[in-house]
Design a protein around this nucleic acid. Sequence first.
DNA 1: AACGGTGCTTGATCTGGATCAAGAAAACAG
DNA 2: CTGTTTTCTTGATCCAGATCAAGCACCGTT
Lengths: 231, 231
Amino acid sequence: MPESYEEDIRALELFAEMEEANFDALMRGAYVQNFPPRIDLIHEEDRPDFLHVVLTGSVDLYSSWNGRESSMATVRPISTFILAATINDLPYLMSARTLERSRIVLVPSTDVRQIFSKDPAFARAIVTELAQCYRSVVKNTKDLKLRTSLERLANYILRQQTLSGSTEFDLTMEKRRLASFLGMTPENLSRAFKGLEPYGVKVSSNHISIVDPDELARFAKPNPLIDDHTT
Amino acid sequence: MPESYEEDIRALELFAEMEEANFDALMRGAYVQNFPPRIDLIHEEDRPDFLHVVLTGSVDLYSSWNGRESSMATVRPISTFILAATINDLPYLMSARTLERSRIVLVPSTDVRQIFSKDPAFARAIVTELAQCYRSVVKNTKDLKLRTSLERLANYILRQQTLSGSTEFDLTMEKRRLASFLGMTPENLSRAFKGLEPYGVKVSSNHISIVDPDELARFAKPNPLIDDHTT
DNA sequence: AACGGTGCTTGATCTGGATCAAGAAAACAG
DNA sequence: CTGTTTTCTTGATCCAGATCAAGCACCGTT
């Protein structure tokens, strides 16, 4: 694997503090692969042979049951998925597919588990990462159970505002996926955008501008225990 | 703390493999407390001063937003909550209250974090536990996003059947809480029970009997990637 | 420029589930 | 035991959101 990628991976919190020798061992077994858009990387029920690290592009995590499908999360560079299955060597709970052309590192799960056992710093980092993932899903559950779809969209827009650092930004995924992620239909998302106009949200194509952030926040009532995904 | 409790805690996977000295150190700082029913143990946003271990009784984990409230999970003996907040020293995402008279061990979070750093077996156990918690919440999210309330109830009943090992069992929580946990109103839960009669579910008070488990399963379509909470 | 193809929007309709209201049945307190 | 409170149920109504059905806009292809 070219060294350039190794540096990017090493910079990840998950790998930053581990011993050099162990990191090298991990990377020896790893390899990079390029995938075209809409390629299934892993499927629910599969065994976790590799820990995946997204270097470029983006990956959709989704789940299916009884012919229905729902988008659960998007993985963007540079981060990993799906750690929990890898660590406990249990079947994936979600499927993953590339959204666009993506460069992905595959690290053999056995290596991860082995080095986890002998590198305390790596172990510590894994715990932090897992705890963070756990808290993210809990926040997502609260969002789903405590809010209406309009409120979820309003808070999503406010989160994107924070991430982009501007009251104007482009949606980072197509609307049909956003709808699924927010637990609603595309038709309803369309109407929900309309429903936020009175609170100062303007939408044209995939460009959003928030005319009056305070007004929107008064409606959305964002809460760090649901919407702050950094803690 | 009386030694009898220590044995119970030691038997927990989380503490089973750690070094004796470290376990003793953990227990030295810990203390047991009895709580009456409906007592708030912790509140969202609080700092995680203690890791809690439920010895007897049961604890409701719930969340609130904008005047609404939802039950997220029930903690039964003998297990811990909420590990993720303790480990990363971040505010609780959920509140906890006793459902009945409960005996609970309080282990100072600083001790947990400190011993986590120096006991690899403990670290390993924490990772396993966190990964399990994470997977549980993911399963719960899939349940919520992919199923109707009737399907969620049907699968809940099948899970309880598996847990109890019998086609007849008593509900382990009051119906209003079950409704909240399943993401519906008490009124609707009442109707949902009626709606499952055609599939061979009989309800009287809090006693459930499944006349025809196969018929129920044909409707519920249980799936290990959603309903098997042991993996 | 004409053509599918795909995603997005809009309107009409339908339905799952919430809300409101009231009674029945338990649980609890004195 | 009796009165009080709380939960559970049932019915009536309402509403959010899903579904169905067109039309529209965008986009890459030829």
